[in-house]
Each structure stands twice: as C-alpha cells, then as structure tokens.
Computed example of a mutant assay.
Amino acid sequence: MVFESLVADLINKYLGDFVENLDRSQLKIGIWGGDVVLQNLDLKESALDDLDLPVKIKAGHIGKLTLKIPWKNLYTEAVVATIDGLYALAVPNVAIKYDAEKEEKAKQEAKQKKLQQIEDAKKAAAEQGKEKEPKKDSFAEKMAAQIIKNLQIQISNIHVRYEDSYTNPDHPFSIGISMADLLFQTTDENWKPCVVKEAVNQIFKVI
C-alpha cells in the first residue's frame, strides 16, 4: 500500500541510524487506527557515533515502538511516537572489542549514507540552477515535513547502564539511571505545546 511504503521509507530514514535490521516486514499498519507498531528492536552500537561522545552503545533494546499518525487530521493533530521499554548499556569507546564483520558493515552503511547526501546535494544544486518555476514539493515530501514538524515522542520505562572497566582497571565501576517517562514536544516561540499548521522557518522543541 502507498501509506505502508511511505511510512516504511520515513522510519528507515530516521530510525535506520539507531535501530539494527529495521525491516519493512516488521511494520504493522492499521490504516483506520493510524498505528505503526514495531516490537523487539535492537539498538546499533553506532547509535551515538554522530554525537562524538566518549561512550558507545554496547547493547540496547526497545521493547515496543508505536507510531500514531492521524491521517485524516494530519495538519491539526500531532504525530505521536510512543516507546515502551528503552534499555541501553554504554561503555567507553575503547572498551568495544573489534569485530571485523560489524566494522565492515558499519563502513558500508556510512558510505551509503555519504553517497545519499552527495546525491541529495547535487539534486538541490541542479534545481537551484534551473531558470524556471521552483519545483513544488511532492505529496510524500509535504507529509514527511508535516510529520517531523509536529512529532511528539513519549518514552517510558527507561534504563541506561554505564560500565567502565577500562579507565581504572583495578577499580571497575558501573552506574545506572532509570526514568519513568521522557517527553519531547513541539512548542511555539513561548515554549507552549502546540501544533504547527503552516510553513515555518523555525521549529521549537522542548524536552
């Protein structure tokens, strides 16, 4: 179905850097209910790499991710992503054992990502260079932009553990953090939750 393909592309684009083996076959879409449900997802070891942090994900798991898309009221209601059960084990970057197969896979994914960025940049430059009426956004592009503008994320049952046996081998330690809930919302310029209905140059988010 068209919606299934569109949502699968969006999920793969924005979650692909964080979730291992994201597969369209995992998608369950209830068109009337507007729900996309993904269960038992594993976090990638490279999930934090773009943040350039001194830690790395050794293991991670998402119990259930539900994406509620109000297809009939997309411009008046928020898209809500609910994550129930987020568990992550972090370690110092140097503590990850070298895995040739994973390393090669990560390199290939990084190359594909870079190639896609170059391709997108070429297309954007080509469009700007054409002396004609600017190309109008496609239906898929408009929908993707609207979803991102008003995306609300609710995460519950969070447990993050950090283990360090490298910094001081004689005194390894671990620490854990648990949170009941974490909420990300779109707001107006006064930081009041809202739904953005028109085209804007800035989007405000609060955690």
Rank of each mutant, 00 (worst) to 15 (best):
L41I: 10
N40K: 11
H61L: 12
G30E: 07
K58F: 01
V55E: 00
E109S: 11
Y87N: 10
Y75C: 10
L65M: 09
D50S: 14
P54F: 08
V79F: 15
V55G: 05
T76W: 05
K68S: 08
A95V: 04
D35R: 13
K64D: 01
K68Y: 08
V55H: 00
K107H: 02
L51R: 05
A47W: 12
P70C: 01
S46G: 14
G30N: 14
L43E: 04
K44M: 02
T82F: 04
I69W: 12
K64Q: 05
A59C: 06
K44N: 05
N93F: 04
I57Y: 01
D35T: 12
K102T: 01
L74D: 09
K44R: 10
K107F: 05
T82C: 04
K64G: 02
K102Q: 15
D99R: 12
Q108G: 00
E101Q: 15
D42M: 14
W32C: 13
V80D: 02
A47R: 03
K107C: 07
Q108N: 02
L38D: 08
A47F: 12
D42V: 15
V37W: 10
N73Q: 08
K102N: 09
V55D: 03
E109D: 12
A47T: 04
E77M: 07
K68E: 07
I62F: 15
V80T: 11
K68F: 11
L48V: 08
K102A: 10
I69S: 08
K68H: 12
L86G: 01
K64C: 13
V94Q: 11
K56A: 08
